[in-house]
Design a protein around this nucleic acid. Sequence first.
RNA 1: CGGGGUGUGGCGCAGUUUGGUAGCGCGCGCCGUUCGGGACGGCGAGGUCAUCGGUUCAAGUCCGGUCACCCCGACCA
Length: 574
Amino acid sequence: MRLSRSFGKTLREAPADAEMISHQLLIRGNFIRPAGAGIYTFMPFGYRVIRKIWNILSEEMDAIGGQEMWMPNLHPSALWEATGRWNTVDVLFKLKTGANREYALSATHEEIVVDLALRETESYRDLPRMVYHISKKFRNEARARGGLMRLREFIMKDAYTLDTSEEALDEYYPHMIQAYYNIFERCGTPARAINADVGAMGGKSSHEFVVPHDQGEDTFIACANCDYAANVEAAVFVREGEKPEKLDELVKTATPDCKTIADVADFIGVPTSQTGKAVFYWWTPAGEEEKNGRFIFGLVRGDLDVNEVKLINAIGEGTIRPATDAEIIAAGGTPGYASPIGLDVAKSIDAPGVFVIADTSLEAGGNFVVGANDDGYHYTGANYPRDFAISQMADIAQADTGHQCAQCGGRIEARRAIEAGHCFKLGTRYSKAVNATYLDENGKPKLIFMGSYGIGLDRLMATIVEKHHDEYGIIWPDSVAPFQVHLMHIGKGDDVRKTADSLYDTLRKEGFDVLYDDREASPGVKFNDADLIGVPWRITVGGRSLKQGGVEVKRRSEKDRHLVPVEELIAHLT
RNA sequence: CGGGGUGUGGCGCAGUUUGGUAGCGCGCGCCGUUCGGGACGGCGAGGUCAUCGGUUCAAGUCCGGUCACCCCGACCA
């Protein structure tokens, strides 16, 4: 590629609204251009990187028996209605055409795959299978952000497994995990697999691949001592603390103007871990309207916070939002001083009364200070189960830095990360919905076990830039670089130009991807563009080096420059 | 969806407070000089000031609506 003829130009300054480094450098380097919020064009350089990543993904998927295919992006509504997701996946872009034909733009492809599985799989002889494709996904994200980090239209590699049983799925799964490790390693963004929440994908369990990064959207927990790691939405930890030897008497105490846990603990003179924190939500079961939901009273030890995803998982499928003061009062609570003591506590989620869900931390401590359901008053010496009942005990508290690892007893810490990939054991979540079965050895129909495995190519490209850049620009790893060689001539002289021109031809004949800066620009401009674009090898043809008998060769990732005789150049690059 | 911010040549910005001929830097075109880390001089092209409406003799500037984009949060396959 001759730079003088390339479409688009590098920019000296990034648009002011680009905040992440990858966003700035990819725009400045002429890799991407915005078309709207969360919508980008991949310019020729950017598309080359995408193709490199694409090839790595294909190779790794093929290596574990994957079959690449290409699925549609326009999905008839019936397919999504069949799995029950037409109305529950709120980021779905929907289109209506004609009288009542409706479509969804592909947000993901479980619906297509399970429909295919239903049609193409007849007996156990047709299993297992692994198929994948790399294509566009459309999700109406409430808020696109960070350049390529969170998009409304993006490119995803998604693979799907079809197995005869949970055991068969479990057996294959590690191969996929290993392929993912290989992919991220090859792309220069080593990632680690952590336990994660399955979210709206449903299914049994999932692993997220995360690349630690301060501006990542994910928070995960990692043990400093052992290999335990999990998304904060799934992370378990030890509730340190003991029930007291002697239970204090329950005493109602005036606590004026103590609206927060810190206020109360300070006023009474106890650590926050000796208080109980009450939080209130309105829960709406999946597929129901909000009015059919119910009030949820959450209770955790005062030094901990509720993790809402864990809370939802403990209650059942559905959504929650913070309860209003009116709802708290209607449930018999006093906002700011609410208490489980004296409430008519529901026996279960279907039973009348107030549903109180308590974190297991309430059993790691006692003589708690809790609200008294009376404005300006708390109880001291509150103990479970002596003084109050609950509906359900569950793990609903958020793990955080300093907590104790459940696996080894060491200390865990919370870190930010970019979610680079996600593997789901879906089980029969989708096959059951459409009755996708196969006949087993005995001729009996059985449900197909599915898995789905995704990697966003655009996000991965941005992540690579986040991890591989310096103050001057991108430093592409060889594996995904848009070109292998950035050739340029600088200074005056016919011999300089001629040498560069012939090198361009020679290198291409030898099979190299070459970006040739053949512009009549000043050296500074050319060097700066080379640093910005970030091609791994830079070859400079100049009068000075020619006089010394060669051309200058430099790795983008290294400081040193080498004078290499023209005839030895190919050998030097390989 | 809640909070905050910004919309002025391709990019970065000033001008809005106090209404009165739309400016600067970069980039772009032509000519000349220059040529190993974003060179210099000269000439030049390019803007219904996001949009719609209102106030006014007069609106980039004041008032109202709308839209777009960015950041924080909520949500997130």
